[in-house]
């Protein structure tokens, strides 16, 4: 495992920790999309089904378990926690996730390495992860409500994607026969989506800044 891959995993982990800390400290999930969080839970569950079939390393097992359990923990807070659930922007968070899930599933049936149950689900998770941030992006555009911790969460997610791309470049030049076109294509698209996210973040931040100026 190279330094980019490890740093990418750590920033991904940090993004989740920041999100959970924000929810616990402020007892609020305002500005967060439950739909994006649910898509991430689907991504993790369908990708990490291989926990039952293949063992890669203890590191992989532990990280997979952390990602699955933390995503369900976030969903539990947003749906079920007595105080936090009341702060969820239900009326604004209306993105139709079927428009993402169905095309991703169709695509994974058509473009995959092998037409088997686990392989199709794994491919589906790769495609879905690339677009899972979209409901969050739409919510952000609608509410213009973004606090420091939410922006840190987005920054860390973007950094995780950028580090994974560096990891692919590194592996391509250092390992023989290392090539994974499905992951590279979706991953590049996903990172591009984060650029968009940052653009809207700066836009809303500027807007808030102007609005808060004393008249």
């Amino acid at each position: 495992m190279n330094i980019f891959r490890f740093a990418g995993d750590m920033t991904h982990l940090c993004s989740i920790i920041v999100l959970l800390l924000k929810i616990q400290a402020t007892k609020s999930c305002a500005g967060l999309s439950l739909r994006t969080q649910e898509l991430y839970a689907i991504v993790f569950v369908s990708r990490y089904l291989d926990l039952f079939f293949t063992f890669i390393s203890m590191y992989n097992v532990i990280m997979k378990l952390i990602f699955i359990s933390s995503s369900f923990c976030i969903i539990w807070y947003m749906r079920c926690h007595r105080i936090v659930a009341q702060t969820y922007d239900r009326e604004q968070d209306t993105f139709r996730v079927a428009f993402l899930v169905v095309p991703c599933f169709m695509l994974s049936l058509m473009i995959n390495h092998e037409f088997s149950f686990t392989e199709v689900l794994w491919t589906f998770s790769i495609y879905l992860e690339a677009v899972a941030i979209l409901p969050q992006l739409v919510l952000l555009q609608r509410t213009f409500n973004i606090d420091t911790l939410t922006s840190n969460y987005i920054f860390l997610l973007g950094a995780y994607r950028a580090l994974y791309m560096l990891n692919w470049i590194y592996r391509y030049f250092t390992e023989r026969d290392y090539s994974q076109w499905i992951v590279w294509t979706s991953g590049t698209l996903q990172t591009a989506t984060y650029c968009d996210f940052f653009y809207y973040y700066i836009l809303s931040w500027r807007k808030n800044e102007r609005l808060s100026l004393p008249s």
Binding site: F67, N167, S179
Partner: peptide
């Protein structure tokens, strides 16, 4: 479809 799949990434 013949390319090996790398599943050691998260």
């Amino acid at each position: 479809a013949s390319e090996p799949t790398v599943k050691d990434e998260l």
